[in-house]
Nucleic acid binder design. Structure first.
Lengths: 288, 288
DNA sequence: CCTTCTTACGGAGTCCGTAAAAATA
DNA sequence: TATTTTTACGGACTCCGTAAGAAGG
């Protein structure tokens, strides 16, 4: 199973065409056909149907392994290159939108610093492959639990955890029902210990049936949230693909749904009863 | 980075010798030398020192990636072979010692069933590579958290969670100090809710400085426990390499140290205050 | 010197492009 | 028939064994 063949296999599967894959990879169609042929002979099973070109069951199984393998091979190369190469000339920082504040905590030395914002998995991948030097990623997790990221041999160099809150519109019925009158803009920043204690916090499982906004780039994807909170059925009322927090908050304010975010960015929100759930930011580095 | 070359690299690193690796892999010394040479040229850095043969810094980084990659390649092959091959003739079950009870829950169909007992990582590896059809592994984790296993594309088909207890000798000072008089053999099985409530449970972090027995094959390794319980310094008083629970309990009874085990196997023990920590057993299968 | 690793060289096999054939819509 | 994939074939390259050459201890 030559990695090159695996690469053409995933490319063919992705593009649904031998010829298109050949074009993308700089091979001839013939070569691609031979790659797939060798792979199928080696594994003893057809991996793709032809016309239309789609993965067979065996091919689907292989696909699920091939991509992590190829990614990890790139990570290995990048990791070796890093220790082999001398001191870095520039610093390339990657960060998810909400982790950007922590990224600023890195004192910038006398280097050219560039910052790139993307989603969690992209950041992890690019740190692993050496495109980025460090990455800041955030998400929702149980206290002291690492974020669930693809295993690429990355190390978590530093960790920050902060409380969560459910962002809600100012006039959301849930506020009226469970915590009357807290929906003031400064509810979190100004509330005293006393007012906070007197206000019952919301349990996540009670909000399962509410309308949620799925904003996987900004914070935890809903399906992941369901796994963490041990509650099925967080169905999205709306899918927000932006990377911008204020845009998400505007949607929440307009009543399109709720969102689970770090308390610091939430103006109208409900405190969480789950103390074991936090917003976690991790600083990722390559190697050990 | 031909996987074959990676394989000879890890073999050379493990054996500390080109010739020994050649013997083990069925190559000539020359071929092994060429493999390493190609790898070093490709990555642009020396990977091994010669005489003595030891990984360089770059080599150490590569090693950390190479083994998971090779394992995953085997897993991919096994996974495809599984869907390609017809219905299985025999069922090979792997299990960790404490998960064996759950393994018995698998109703055995009209197949030849063989059971193999090994440690967690071995079981996971052999399920991934198709040596075993299913695997039962156990360990300590936070409630609803998966066990930390090498990422090999395995699926968790079923899960059991049960309460934990700290196994202690009948006359351990901790019993006298924290929960006087509970060290009766039937303390857990016979205790009523009332007696249980009146008996203060023990927090794991209070036991950090106690003497522990590290029994990584039987239950969670101590270093992992430290990570889960967020407490450093679980230093082992004794390292138990056996796979046998009764042997471990005998050592505990003889006062050689404490052990964290599922409550069902503990006769003299302390209940845990952490409700979020459980003994978890997972049924592992290949593929999705 | 003896062990261990490296280098030189050549045969067998692999990889991939050109070109022609086959297959499917 | 038009498009896409497969097969045939050959050149260049790779892999690995034999054998001779360095390099340590």
């Amino acid at each position: 199973m030559d990695p090159r063949f695996l690469r053409t296999f995933v490319t063919v599967a992705r593009l649904g065409s031998f010829s298109a894959a050949a074009r993308e990879l700089g091979y001839t169609q013939s070569a691609v056909s031979q790659h797939i042929g060798v792979l199928e002979a080696d594994l003893g099973a057809p991996l793709l149907t032809r016309r239309p070109v789609e993965p067979t069951e065996a091919g689907a199984r292989l696909l699920e392994h091939a991509e992590p393998i190829l990614l990890r091979l790139d990570a290995a190369r990048a990791d070796v290159a890093k220790v082999a190469g001398g001191p870095p000339r520039s610093l390339r920082i990657g960060t998810t939108p909400l982790a950007c504040g922590h990224a600023a905590s890195l004192v910038a030395p006398a280097l050219t610093v560039t910052v790139r914002v993307a989603d969690r998995v992209t950041i992890a991948r690019e740190v692993a492959t050496g495109v980025l030097d460090v990455g800041f990623v955030d998400g929702v997790a149980a206290v002291n639990d690492p974020l669930r990221l693809p295993e690429l041999g990355l190390t978590v160099a530093e960790v920050w955890e902060e409380p969560l809150a459910v962002a809600v519109p100012a006039d959301h019925p849930l506020i009226a029902r469970t915590v009357p009158g807290i929906a003031r803009p400064s509810s979190f920043s100004r509330s005293t210990d006393e007012s906070r204690r007197s206000r019952p916090a919301v349990r996540l499982e009670d909000l399962v049936d509410a309308r949620w906004i799925d904003a996987p780039v900004v914070c935890a994807p809903l399906d992941e949230l369901a796994a963490i909170a041990r509650a099925d059925g967080f169905r999205p009322a709306l899918h927000y693909d932006g990377a911008d927090v204020s845009g998400l908050l505007a949607l929440v304010a307009a009543g399109h749904g709720l969102a689970l975010l770090p308390r610091r960015v939430v103006t109208h929100g409900l405190a969480l009863a789950e103390p074991a759930l936090t917003h976690r930011t991790e600083l990722l580095r390559l190697g050990g």
